[in-house]
Design a protein around this nucleic acid. Sequence first.
DNA 1: TGCGTTCTCTGAAGCGCTTAAGACATGCTG
DNA 2: CAGCATGTCTTAAGCGCTTCAGAGAACGCA
Lengths: 360, 360
Amino acid sequence: MASTRRRQPTLDDVAGAVGVSRTTVSNAFNRPDQLSSALRDEILRAAKRLGYAGPDPVARSLATKRVGAIAFMLDTAVSAAFSDPALSITLDALATAVDAEGHALLLLPGGDHGGPPAGRVLSAQADLAVAYSLADGAPALRAVRDRGLPLVVIDQPHVPGSARVSTDDRGGAEAAARHLLDLGHRRFAIMSAQCLSEPRGGPMTTGEAMGSAFRDNRERLAGYVDTLVAAGVAVEQVPVWETSGTSREQAAQAAGALLDREPRPTALLCMSDELALGALAAARRRGLDVPGELSVVGFDDAPPASWAEPALTTVRQDLHGKGTLAGELALRLLAGRKPPPPVTLPVELVVRASTGRAPG
Amino acid sequence: MASTRRRQPTLDDVAGAVGVSRTTVSNAFNRPDQLSSALRDEILRAAKRLGYAGPDPVARSLATKRVGAIAFMLDTAVSAAFSDPALSITLDALATAVDAEGHALLLLPGGDHGGPPAGRVLSAQADLAVAYSLADGAPALRAVRDRGLPLVVIDQPHVPGSARVSTDDRGGAEAAARHLLDLGHRRFAIMSAQCLSEPRGGPMTTGEAMGSAFRDNRERLAGYVDTLVAAGVAVEQVPVWETSGTSREQAAQAAGALLDREPRPTALLCMSDELALGALAAARRRGLDVPGELSVVGFDDAPPASWAEPALTTVRQDLHGKGTLAGELALRLLAGRKPPPPVTLPVELVVRASTGRAPG
DNA sequence: TGCGTTCTCTGAAGCGCTTAAGACATGCTG
DNA sequence: CAGCATGTCTTAAGCGCTTCAGAGAACGCA
């Protein structure tokens, strides 16, 4: 295509130049033990002279039925992905794990329906797909199945035939809510990231929120709500706010809306650290003392949680371990082995400085 | 391979089932105008019935000589990439730009020599490569050339035949240094990220630092040093510290080492916001008032710079624009057009609260 | 009616590589 | 010296798809 790129030499060119068969040249690159080292050297020299950089990856893949890449499917745009430390860490661990076996990551960012467009998935050059927190019923998942690609899902409902790793979202949320109840709080508000496949932004009822297309959302919400209900909190009075995006600024705006309500909540349950950090910013702007007048708890325990001022009370999950495990599962499926039973990773409440006794 | 994955049907299977030629089935998927819509519907129905999800991407690529992916080559591991907001933003903008034309990003993380291993590049399934701040002479660059892949370089020395976009690193550094000189500072220290291909961590002379394998490092350093020298500062007295990694904690440690020296510097020139934010943390731990006792300036103006406490004085570059431009250049090369002359994007000093008059 | 178009569909040649199977010469064993 | 293993290289059949160059039939127009 590129006019500047003139035709690259092929195996046949090298074979012709040296006067051997194409197979021998292929072996020179792939199976050095299959030919005399003298001939091999000659072939490699000729290749270099002709500007042959080695077997064409695409042609090789067609012949071997192996690409050497793993498709990573996100719900969000790449931007949101990278600005979310929780995802970054998981992705990194995954990349490291599969890199060891020579697999690179092909990024398939989200489109409009809670995941990448099906067309992208169908034409992706990959041996396996990893789905990270896609919306239920995302078209991408169907496309993966149609193609017969092995699949690893992270923080999503189980897909038959695929490997799965997820987090004890509900347990973590319960622990967070219980912690605040123990501190005497009774007026709560909940901050949620995007709930529905079609993001909206703004207040919603707990009922609406429970209809979230995202499993981790539903689980965390259920953990909060069940715990509050069990403690006798009138949950229909608990406002839930969906942020309009994932940036910290958007989180701050959402938190502001919640904090400007009367009566003002004394405790904010946030479904991620980024939301919680936005809430801290909103509180600061209003001159609200945290934790004196407002307690905030996050989820994930990503690095910024401990840098924050005040340091964030949050639910720790092993992000790195999650990614590593997902990578190992991927390698396992690629090796032709069966997916093991789904794994749920434990969480742990980390109490820091952003939560305190309820005021008054 | 995967024993669970049974043979997927091919174009021929569909053609056989419908009783048409393979070409016609191909056309049904790729060029709907080449056949009657009745037949097309029948073919699509048959495909669905047989579980044929569309043309195999690899085979299609072999025939069309087009993959639909762009290799993104990093110096660092994926982790560092994602924890660096400057890179995240650039990468996102790039991804968005090329996504519009149907290209996904293939991530090639760094190995040991200032970029991904050559072997990974040679076997990467991509139509074009983007190099982001690789070390000079990284093997990956040679591999790209050997393969005859089009190349876009970001923040790197120009490579003949490739497109290039970079930042006015030197100008930005000069502005930062001048700002501090104007505030009366005379005792400086410089914090640098990884300088050499082989990271070391620790103090280094400005001479060593100028031998950095990374162009942006050299340029920023030169900007600082030239400006200080021109103002009569004894530059051999200015300590330079290379951090041992890119995390904020590592930056804080490096800054701590600098702040514990006697006489303590009153101004810290940091080659990135992340380093500067680490420095703020180190100052806080030591009870140093910023900007009363210490001024800190960063580079990049990524979002966390303005959230910081105190908000960071820094050199703004248009990270999003840089990524978008790189993406456009990539598309341009893919369209077979010639690379335009290298572009250098302007920068701008943003004065916030982390810099003030020199104490005393 | 005759002839050039247009519409549909087919044949066949690749794209560049891997790999099973086999040819041939050589060395080794008993 | 027969017989067998070993080492070296070749032949040829794919991998699954795209696309150029037609073949026929149906159609329009003068």
